[in-house]
């Protein structure tokens, strides 16, 4: 009986190990896909911000429709549920140069969610303001920039 238990435990243990070993290779792929997805999201932020910021600094002529479209995109992107793009174990410590995401994202008690919310709030305000004239756009972009910096400051590995 005792042997039976030991054997069963041993088998279970081996099975767990096996699963872990199998899922490791799979996890790598899944982890890198998540990293890619969130980096693509950052690029989409930057692309739409480029339109808004270009107008704010006078490099592009202000156009209400284009501004409004970019700002609406930004607001949509920042209100997207990104949970699946940030699985635990996809930090810079685990994945090295593939990501600049610091472990603090996962272990500072959810403060990172507040930082994410501040981008959503600032982008929503931008979506309201951007079509109404250059002054409104200029007034709204400061808070957007601050929310980006607020996250990068704490959660992104310095270059």
């Amino acid at each position: 009986m005792k042997t039976g238990i030991t054997l069963a435990t041993g088998l279970a243990f081996a099975a767990t190990l096996g699963t872990a070993a199998l899922s490791d290779g799979h996890a790598d792929k899944a982890a890198l896909a998540a990293v890619k997805a969130r980096q693509a999201t950052m690029q989409l932020y930057a692309f739409n911000l480029g339109i808004l910021g270009g107008m704010a600094k006078g490099a592009i002529e202000y156009n209400a429709d284009a501004a409004s479209a970019a700002a609406t995109n930004l607001a949509s992107l920042s209100s997207m549920n990104q949970m699946a793009m940030w699985p635990p174990g996809t930090d810079n410590g685990a994945l090295g140069d593939a990501t600049a995401a610091l472990p603090a994202i996962w272990n500072d008690g959810g403060k990172v969610m507040e930082a994410g919310m501040s981008l959503a709030t600032a982008s929503a305000a931008m979506a309201e303001a951007a079509g109404g004239g250059l002054d409104g756009l200029r007034g709204a972009i400061g808070a957007v920039g601050k929310s980006c910096g607020g996250c990068h400051d704490t959660y992104r590995k310095p270059k």
Binding site: Y45, A46, F47, L49, G50, G53, A56, K57, I141, G142, G145, K146, C148, G149, G150, H152, D153, R156, P158, K159
Partner: peptide, 24 residues
């Protein structure tokens, strides 16, 4: 000048690290 005002690089990446304090 715009980077120092907004924290945005010409590629619209945003400042991180100690530069966020500087930009503030």
């Amino acid at each position: 000048a715009y980077y120092l005002e907004s924290g945005f690089t010409p590629d619209f990446d945003a400042a991180g690290g100690q530069m966020t304090d500087v930009v503030q």
